[in-house]
Structures are given as structure tokens and as C-alpha cells.
Amino acid sequence: MASSRGSSHRGDAHLAETVSRLRAELDGLRARQRSQAIIEQAKGLLAGRLACSPEEAFEHLAAMSQHTNMKVIDVAAGLIGIAAPVTVPATRPSAPHTEIDLGVPRDDAVELNASTVVSLPPELAARYHLSCAAMAAAADANELAETMWTHGVQQLGAHAVMLTIVEPDGAVRLVGAHGLPATVVSAWHRVPGSLKVAFLRTAAEGRPWWISRAEAAALGYEFIGDGQMRACLPMRLADHVLGVAVVMWPQALDVDAATRSYLQTMADAAGRRLSALVRAADGRHAVAAAHWIDTVLHALPGSVALLCPVRDDSGDILDWCLQRCSPGAVDSTGRTAAELTGRRLLELYPHAPLKALFAGYRDTLTTGEPFEVNSLRLV
């Protein structure tokens, strides 16, 4: 019996390793798909400039990659940046109507002429294209904030990113964050328009504002989170401001005009993706509820998970996804919240008797009645 049990555990461990490997391969495939559009643009550019075939254009890309010791995707993004640098209109869009008195003078002296256009240097334009490809795949506002940091601003020394949306009454709601403690996210979830907070000024005026901790203290402004410097950047859509992206640095620094323009393009790209998430089916509800879900999960003791159904085209439930987990969550194999979040039950526990569990979850979802199970071995 012991030998059979040991063999079963070894088989389960091998299966878990296989599933983990396949998941890593799938994540890699998705990343390559996001980058393929950039490579195809670069191939088209070279094919046109060199009058060669797409295959020969890719050979040129590969040769440049080897010569410069850079990845092909970085070379491709660099070429696109050189050929078509991103331009940043300096015009200030209209902000949402609000009666906020921010208590500081408007620095209209630094307002750029409406006809001014700032071009990004090639290296920043290349990073912009790479970041946009990654942000376009973000599934929610928190992932969008993390992606913006990882691909777009981490290299500039920033330690945190916060994404907010402007509400009709002039308040600002925090919908996504990376690098901030949960207590800070919870405390500043919704900021009324009556408070003196830097990003409220950006939301009201529709233009960037860079501020240090010392400057905030001198003006009587709240300074959310750690660090010494932040950029409050409007996420602009057409002629209005959807929200504000806040990029934070651990130390005060001088930032040149090109980098400031780059960060504004990043904020606009994040705004486009955030707008798509809000407009998606139930997107507004999902964006608004995400913070409260995290707050509840942080407050509950033990291992707690929020399960969401995975449906087929006809609406039938195929599986359940652990959408969010409490910080202390751990399953019987020792996997932590970071390893469980975003995974599916059938992927995590392929040998478990899940039929009864699935039925109970489905009944709770449709009836609202609690479902309890006293003993069910998942592994």
C-alpha cells in the first residue's frame, strides 16, 4: 500500500511539473505573439527600403541582432522608432468639469504652444513600441500597472505605478497599482475632489504635474506612498481625461524633456488599454470592484480564493479560475498565492474528484446559497 501511495505521489509530482512546463511554454508563446507585430513592421520597413523580400528582410534583422548583441525584437523596435518616432501633441485636452479648488496657482507660463509637437528619440520610441505591445494584452488594471512598470518605466528607476480613473463628481478612483503596499491602495482607493492630492490637480487641469515630497509638503499636499518624486500624467482620450497615471521614484531627480514626453506617451497608451477594459463586457464593474475584492481577501484569515467560472461559447462552465487569492493562501501541496492566482482548478488538480465540487460551485453561483464541503482531497 505504501509503495502504491508513493508511486501515486511521484506520478502527481511529474504531472504537476508537466503542467507547469506547458504553462511556461504557453506564456512564452503569448509573449512572442505580442512581439510579432513589431517584427513584421520592421520587416516591411526593411523590405521597402532595401527592395528585398520579407524573408531577406528578416535575415537582415537577424544579422543586426548578432552584430549588436541585441534581441531581434529590440532591433525591430529600434528600427520602427528611427523610422517613425512617436510624437506627443503638447495641447492640453479639456478635463472633466469640476469645481475643485486645488489651492495652487496654475503655472500657465510653462504651457507649451498648441502647435508644439515633441518627438521621441529612437531609443525611447523603441521602448514605447515594445511597451504598447505588452500593455495591449493586460487582462485587468493591476496587470496593466505592472506591465507599464516592467516594460516602460522600471528602466528609468521608478519603483511603483498607480492608475486611476476620474469619476463624474471629480473624485479619482484608484483601479490598478504595482509596487504599492495593500494598505496604501486600500487607504487611497477613492480620493474626493475636496482633498489636496497631486493627481487631483492633473485630473482637473488635464496636464502633467511633476512634484517632489518636499514640494508637496510646502504646498500642503498629501504625498501617497513611499518615495521622493512622482509624475502625475493624464491618461488622455481624444478631448477628455479618462484618468491619471502616477509614476513614483524613490529619490528626487531631474528629468529631461524627452523622458517626460516618453512618459506621457506611456500614460496615453495605458489609458487606451484601460478604456478598453472599462468598455468590455462587465468591464466597468470589474474595474470598480477589483479594489474591494483585494481588500476583503487581505482581511480574511486563512486560505481564501475568489473563483470565477470559465465558460465555453454556449455558456456552459468548463472550469473554474482562481482569479484572486488572499496573501496567505496555500494549498495542500504548498503552492502559495502567487503560484495559485490566475490558474484553473483542472490545471492545478487534474486527478482530483472535482465533479461534485464543480456542481456545488455552480449551484452557489446560480442560487446564491452557500456550498460547504467537509472533506475533498484535491491531491
Score class of each variant (00 low, 15 high):
I39H: 07
Q41S: 11
A42Q: 10
G44N: 15
G44K: 02
A47Y: 15
G48H: 15
R49S: 14
L50E: 10
A51N: 14
S53E: 15
P54V: 14
E55T: 14
F58T: 15
E59S: 12
H60C: 14
V72L: 01
I73S: 01
D74C: 06
V75T: 11
A76W: 00
A77V: 09
I80A: 11
I80H: 02
I80S: 12
G81M: 07
G81C: 11
G81F: 03
I82Y: 05
A83F: 00
A84I: 13
P85N: 09
T87L: 08
A90I: 11
R92I: 03
R92F: 04
T98F: 04
E99W: 04
D101N: 02
D101R: 06
L102Q: 06
V104G: 12
P105F: 06
P105V: 11
P105A: 08
A109G: 06
V110E: 09
E111I: 01
N113R: 08
N113F: 09
A114C: 00
A114D: 01
T116S: 07
V118F: 02
V118D: 05
V118G: 04
V118N: 07
L120N: 07
L120T: 06
L120V: 12
P121N: 06
P121L: 04
P121R: 10
P121D: 07
E123R: 08
E123C: 09
A125R: 06
A126K: 04
R127I: 08
Y128M: 01
H129T: 06
L130T: 02
L130P: 00
A134R: 00
A134Q: 06
M135P: 02
A137H: 09
A138P: 03
A139N: 07
D140T: 02
E143Q: 03
E143Y: 00
E143R: 05
T147S: 02
M148D: 03
M148R: 03
V153M: 07
V153L: 05
Q154P: 11
L156W: 13
H159P: 09
M162K: 08
M162H: 13
T164H: 13
I165C: 08
V166G: 00
P168C: 01
P168H: 01
R173I: 08
H178F: 10
G179Q: 13
G179L: 04
P181R: 09
P181A: 05
A182D: 15
A182V: 13
V184L: 09
